[in-house]
Structures are given as structure tokens and as C-alpha cells.
């Protein structure tokens, strides 16, 4: 099983060390080898289950209720300024 660890790390936003890449590639190879066993199952005509308990139309009224104060909203922000969260400048 060949996996593109760099591509997966990129999609996952994880900076992996060269050692991690080697180790994870091998471990993921084993795991993926194991999960391949699902191919043995005949799933023709079987509906997928996305939810263990099927419920439909869970909708709520459009009736606002109070949210968080600005203080609570930003309470855990690593960097903030002017009541906003700050990140390094995003280059468009």
C-alpha cells in the first residue's frame, strides 16, 4: 500500500518530521492493509448508515437567544486586538 504521506500531512495541516513520516507511513500501511478487508464484504444494494439513530427534520425556530459576551468569545484567543482574533497577515 503506497500512501502519499506528504499530501496527507498537507491536507491535515500537520508539519511532520522526517522520522514521523517514515513511522506513520509504515503504520498507516499496516492499518490500511487491515481495513482493506472490508473489500471481502458484499455490499451490493446496501444503504449506507450515516447516523446510528435515524431522525429527520431536526429544525429549530428562528428565534435568537443570547450568545457569548465578547470577553467570553475571546477568552482563550492566543492573540487578540480591538476585540478581534489576530492571525499572521493573510496574503490574498
Amino acid at each position: 500500500m503506497q500512501i502519499d504521506i506528504d499530501h496527507l500531512a498537507m491536507l491535515s495541516r500537520l508539519a511532520l518530521t522526517p522520522e514521523e513520516k517514515v513511522k506513520f507511513s509504515a503504520q498507516l500501511g499496516d492499518i490500511i492493509g487491515y481495513i482493506e478487508k472490508l473489500k471481502e464484504v458484499n455490499v451490493d444494494g446496501v444503504e449506507p448508515t450515516a447516523h446510528a439513530t435515524p431522525i429527520f427534520n431536526v429544525l429549530q425556530a428562528d428565534d435568537p437567544r443570547p450568545g457569548l459576551s465578547v470577553e467570553d468569545a475571546l477568552r482563550n484567543a492566543p492573540v487578540q486586538r480591538d476585540h478581534m482574533v489576530v492571525v499572521p497577515r493573510v496574503v490574498e
Binding site: V43, P48, A50
Partner: peptide, 13 residues
């Protein structure tokens, strides 16, 4: 993978 796993999930249920 994902699509098949969801179907196997149905069979297990």
C-alpha cells in the same frame, strides 16, 4: 473506504 464502511455499518446494525 468511507462509503463501503458506512454500508458495512448497516450490515452490522
Amino acid at each position: 473506504y468511507y462509503g463501503r464502511a458506512q454500508k458495512v455499518r448497516t450490515l452490522i446494525r
